[in-house]
Amino acid sequence: MKKSLNERMDEASLKELMPDFDKGAEWAKLSAKLQPAKRRKVLTWQRAAAVLLLVAAASFFLLLATGNKPENATMAADAQARNWASDMMQPVPAMSSPEAQINSTGQEASTAEYVTGVTASVASVPQLQHNESHRTKEFVCNGTPCPLEICIIQTIYCKNQQPAAIATCNTLEPDQARQLKYKAPNGAGAQCNVTVDEIRIKRVTTGETIVLNAHSKPSTAQDLFNCITGKEKCDLLAGIFESDCNNQQTNRGLKIDNNCGSLIMQ
């Protein structure tokens, strides 16, 4: 019996007509195209996880850097340090709103705090709030012609909490005098200890930053901290700026002393 055209074609073998056709390979391509929605979901999660990991790693290195800055206080901070510092000071204030004070020229100055450490996890932030912001006993006067931002970077160690780094930043306009804010344990029964890791003094207009830490010379961060909190009489050189606020390349040492009552930076 004669077979119809359709029957003959239906009975034909693809192997005979197209020997190199790979059914499996074609299915692999097809199934990859068939499941994009599922894969997109997986990718979304993978992306989210990657971002979280990246943020955690970046914060970890930031904390490490905050605690272990190389010795550099005898001179003005190098360009890398300046960039790093100005980047670091950018975050949104995390704990309190900026305060303002009126300086002698009628300009406003601000204070802001930033949680800087990785380990300042959500859980540890409420604990930080129990550690009050103190003000320096002495009024600190900016005797330089340029606005200065002074950031006091501290680590708070609380019982059963991960240590958290916090930066308290104060901006002083030229000729402005004010009490600077910093963190201190809340009362005698406080469960937390606070250490001073770093003090950064930045020329706001140029971004140039002097970084004082435990290893800096001739003054350490603790020296300056003791000075500005009035714990010690002092007359110290914090560092040297390479340029003034007009970016003029003239070295300017930043001296701080409280020998005559108020602490003057000049």
């Binding site: 004669k2 055209l5 003959r8 074609m9 009975e11 034909a12 073998s13 005979e16 007509l17």
Partner: peptide
């Protein structure tokens, strides 16, 4: 016209 042709030849 395609009488008696095998599938391969038809193709």
């Amino acid at each position: 016209v395609l009488d008696n042709l095998a599938a391969k030849d038809i193709m």
